[in-house]
């Protein structure tokens, strides 16, 4: 394989693996920017993957090619509702946010597998018939070099994820809502004094992350896995969390980090057929995202700093 062939092969594959991570990491950016730590992204993704697969299996015959896209909407709604559990615990009940997130992860997996066993009487669903499909983008695909790299055999979900990242950047940095969101995450008391409803902002942020995390899980399930079992989502939520931190709590940073982690993931899966990469032990590629995140946190790759109030419940009147 020539170097160019490798690029043609690996770049689409990296974007393909990155799409669910981008979605979920952007969701993480919203919550953390509002001052709520969301360790429960993994659980949210599981619920999203589960609900989209169940929907897909049930309605594929009636909806045809649109099924996976409607499945995303279903996952969006289910994810947002599911994340309310975290919002209630972390914002209203002043629970330790990390512990509540851990509970969310356990609950997501348990509820999903329990329901699968109830509905299908077995631990794993059948494969879905209507998956996300690839297509070539007209005109753009004819650009030399880049066309073959970025615009042939693309998944709609990948484009969708990248667009969402830019929209998130616009919302967080260019709108009044985004300014309030960030102020609530940095200094909730000051925001409260200025008339921003801290509780409301945090509820909205957690639900946005639930919606995006749900979509992330649904993309993974309907584009990559093709079915649902207890191990369909195994660590993608935490990898999205890592991408959010590696991207320094910034939507476009998270986008870049998620693309990079997608590359590491696709290399670890397809690396055996690529020259040079096949000499690298697979384990190195598998642990790379996590090692890089630790290094980023430690300040070796630019200092990553969390929003100031992230992780602390806001108690009115407390200094």
């Amino acid at each position: 394989m020539s170097f160019l062939d490798v690029l043609y092969f690996i770049i689409p594959s990296a974007i393909y693996y990155a799409a669910p991570l981008i979605m979920t990491a952007i969701g993480g950016v919203f919550t953390e920017r509002s001052g709520v730590v969301n360790i429960g992204l993994e659980g949210v993704m599981i619920i999203g993957a589960f609900s989209s697969i169940v929907f897909n299996l049930k309605y594929a015959a009636t909806l045809g090619g649109w099924t996976p896209w409607v499945g995303l909407l279903v996952a969006l709604a289910v994810g947002a509702v599911f994340s309310l559990i975290l919002a209630v615990a972390a914002v209203s009940f002043r629970a330790d946010q990390t512990v509540a997130g851990v509970a969310l992860n356990l609950l997501g997996l348990a509820v999903a597998v329990f329901s699968i066993k109830m509905i299908y009487d077995k631990g794993q669903t059948d494969s879905i018939s209507e998956r996300f499909s690839r297509f070539d983008i007209p005109v753009l695909k004819d650009i030399p070099l880049l066309g073959k790299m970025f615009f042939t055999d693309v998944y709609g979900t990948s484009i969708f994820a990248i667009v969402v990242a830019f929209i998130a950047w616009f919302i967080i940095y260019k709108t009044p809502f985004g300014l309030r969101l960030r102020s609530v995450g940095e200094h909730p008391m000051a925001a409260d004094t200025m008339g921003v409803n801290v509780t409301k902002m945090r509820y909205i942020a957690v639900m946005i992350s639930g919606a995006l995390g749900g979509i992330g899980g649904a993309i993974y399930a309907q584009a990559i896995a093709g079915n649902f079992s207890a191990t369909t989502i195994s660590g993608q939520g935490f990898m999205a969390l890592a991408a959010m931190i590696f991207g320094k709590w910034h939507p476009l940073g998270a986008l870049g980090a998620a693309l990079f982690f997608g590359l590491a993931q696709s290399l670890s899966i397809a690396g055996a057929s690529i020259p040079y990469v096949k000499d690298v032990p697979q384990v190195i590629l598998l642990i790379l995202p996590y090692v890089l995140t630790i290094l980023a946190l430690a300040g070796f790759i630019g200092k990553a700093k969390a929003p100031k109030a992230s992780g602390t419940p806001y108690i009115k009147g407390k200094r």
């Binding site: 615990a89 009940f93 629970a95 509970a103 356990l106 609950l107 066993k117």
Partner: peptide
Amino acid sequence: IPVEIVSIVIALIIFFVASGYI
């Protein structure tokens, strides 16, 4: 009954202990 019911109960217990304030 699927064994996951126990994990559901455990997750709920964690949730309630964490929400001890309420």
